[in-house]
């Protein structure tokens, strides 16, 4: 796959975008087909795999572990909250440019972007930890087990298996699906008196909690500015022609949860505001479709389980 592009191809793609016929026949606001499957990895609390046809393939896993609370020494904040720690890694097998340390910068950029969008305030950054002390809609206080002592820590790990453009959108869709799918065991807390607590994690498979606030998690839409227009869901070649990329994180209610510009170009202010609006409308429509799919899958899994059939997951080689 090329990381180079010829001036003639660049010009062809640019003019094509101007008359709304992209190189593969899509229009500027068309997405490619997306394949989504949840609960693909057995060792996790929740997982999802998202594959964009002919494009990127990402695998998201959410593991819930128990750990000490992180208290901000200055404000005393965090004693009654759980944590979310994100990490994104591009597997060296995903693309030739990722071998060795090549993916380091990209990994870091994506991880920081995800941490920022899943937090709703910046104190995480000033206190240096990569954890989210706010919430991307997720109610962290419900993740606390014993205030001041123990809480649930959700490790959200994304692995990029194939790089074909439009990585951020795929990752966020997967994270939303994986968190929707995450099952956290219930805990029973016993008060031993004197401020001492003991807790026990219930073993019953049916006794689980879903993550509170998972419907309010944001997804993101990446808008690529090429020439004077912008497109969504760019292929690799289109990404090479991009002057500036704007990532808009939107939640179900239409609130913008984050905004970040990438690449070396500049955007005119009125175009920026227009792109934000476009991102917001598209994001809301995308969330609707995505939620419908996730719910459908969750329901079919549930009916299969109640009937005693194990839910058959197709995993990696299915189209």
């Amino acid at each position: 796959m090329p990381s180079l592009i010829s001036p003639a191809e660049r010009d062809y793609i640019l003019k094509g975008i101007e008359c709304n016929i992209r190189a593969d026949g899509r229009q500027r606001s068309d997405f490619r087909e997306i394949t989504l499957e949840t609960s693909v990895v057995s060792q996790t609390s929740g997982s999802a795999r998202v594959r964009i046809a002919g494009g990127s393939d990402v695998l998201i896993s959410v593991k819930a572990e128990i750990g000490p609370v992180q208290v901000d020494p200055e404000t005393g904040d965090g004693a009654d909250k759980g944590q979310i720690i994100c990490s994104i890694e591009c597997a060296p097998s995903a693309s030739q440019q990722f071998e060795g340390r090549g993916a380091d910068d990209l990994n870091n950029e994506l991880t920081q972007m995800m941490s920022r969008f899943l937090c709703s305030n910046n104190t995480a950054i000033s206190s240096l930890s990569p954890t989210c002390s706010g919430s991307g809609g997720i109610d962290l206080s419900k993740l606390c087990i014993i205030p001041g002592q123990q809480c649930w820590i959700l490790f959200v790990d994304a692995l990029v298996l194939d790089y074909g453009g439009n990585l951020m959108d795929a990752i966020f869709m997967g994270v939303r699906a994986a968190i929707y799918d995450t099952k956290i065991p219930k805990t029973e807390v016993q008060d031993l008196g004197d401020g001492q607590f003991e807790f026990e994690v219930l073993d019953d498979e049916e006794d689980i909690d879903f993550v509170h606030g998972r419907e309010d998690m944001p997804i993101c839409i990446t808008l690529n500015k090429i020439g004077t227009r912008h497109i969504v869901d760019a292929t690799l070649l289109e990404e090479l022609c991009t002057e500036a990329k704007l990532v808009v994180a939107v939640n179900r209610a239409g609130e913008i949860c984050g905004l970040q510009k990438n690449h070396d170009g500049s955007i005119e202010p009125s175009l920026l505001l227009e792109m934000i609006q476009v991102g917001k409308t598209m994001g809301q429509a995308l969330i609707k479709n995505l939620d419908a799919k996730i719910k459908e899958e969750a329901e079919s899994d549930l009916t299969k389980r109640l009937q005693g059939d194990p839910a058959r997951k197709l995993g990696f080689f299915a189209q």
């Binding site: 937090c119 706010g134 609130e255 510009k261 955007i267 202010p269 920026l272």
Partner: peptide
Amino acid sequence: HEITHVLQSGK
């Protein structure tokens, strides 16, 4: 009259 970078966090 062009914006070269924008970074927004929080809702």
